[in-house]
């Protein structure tokens, strides 16, 4: 089946058309990745059409959408989420949301099996990272979490890690094995079982991991002295 994969949870604005069959790993037929953390909204839809053109298909040929649901900086993340939701609605095809960190892990294990656990991190800004840890086959062990790198560094020795992938991950002293951002193939791999079984997608909800910054107002300041 033909699946459109989108992710805007990192500075990479990613769109790809992927062929998924029961026989082997998913294969990317057309991919557009542009790096610009402030232009997700401008770059994504042209990227989708370019990926379709490269794959030699139109939007109407697509049979499902897989979108990275984060965690990621909110404004960019929502571009991918709402684009996926609207495309799925307009085309009448299912939309599956997957954890963006899972997609990075899936890309690593599609390439080569590991002999231990994998750490995936991405940039959460405000001097924090989003992270999750995975078993050798790609199953998530813990996370996703948002935390300061120093706090994560203290956990690293207890996680049985042999490799790392994602962004800002060099600081943890592990061999870096994978992409900085989710790939179309990785995104589709995470949802592959559900897609092939024709299962209904779950609720499409972003993984924000943080509450909005807002506090109810306190006492009003007097204007007269």
């Amino acid at each position: 089946m033909l699946v459109l994969a989108l992710d805007t949870a990192t500075p990479a604005v990613t769109a790809g058309v992927v062929r998924l069959t029961p026989e082997g790993p998913p294969t990317a037929l057309g991919t557009r990745v542009v790096h610009d953390a402030r232009k997700h909204g401008e770059l994504l839809m042209p990227g989708v059409l370019a990926a379709c053109a490269e794959a030699g298909v139109t939007l109407r040929d697509l049979e499902a959408v897989v979108v990275g649901a984060g965690p990621g900086p909110f404004t960019g993340l929502r571009v991918g989420m709402v684009t996926a939701a609207a495309l799925g609605d307009a085309l009448g095809i299912p939309v599956h949301g997957v954890c963006s960190l899972d997609a990075i892990a899936a890309e690593v294990v599609v390439e080569a099996r590991l002999d231990g656990n994998l750490l995936v991190t991405t940039d959460a800004r405000r001097r924090e990272v989003y992270w999750a840890a995975y078993e050798a086959e790609g199953r998530r062990l813990t996370g996703p979490t948002v935390e300061r790198p120093e706090a994560l560094a203290e956990r690293v020795p207890g996680l049985g890690l042999v490799a790392a992938a994602g962004a800002l991950v060099e600081q943890f002293g592990l061999p870096v094995r994978g992409p900085e951002a989710p790939t179309p193939r990785g995104l589709v791999a995470v949802a592959a079982d559900l897609l092939l079984a024709g299962k209904e997608p779950g609720l499409l909800e972003p993984l924000y991991l943080r509450r909005p910054d807002a506090v109810p107002p306190g006492e009003r300041k007097r204007v007269s002295t």
Binding site: H40, G41, L44, M45, V48, L49, L59, F74, T75, R78, V79, V82, T83, A84, A85, A86, L87, D89, A90, L91
Partner: peptide, 19 residues
Amino acid sequence: LAGALLVGVAAAKAYAAAW
């Protein structure tokens, strides 16, 4: 509001392209 506008603009692009 920048972030609010962005949601509508992204959705509109997707609907326009799909239709």
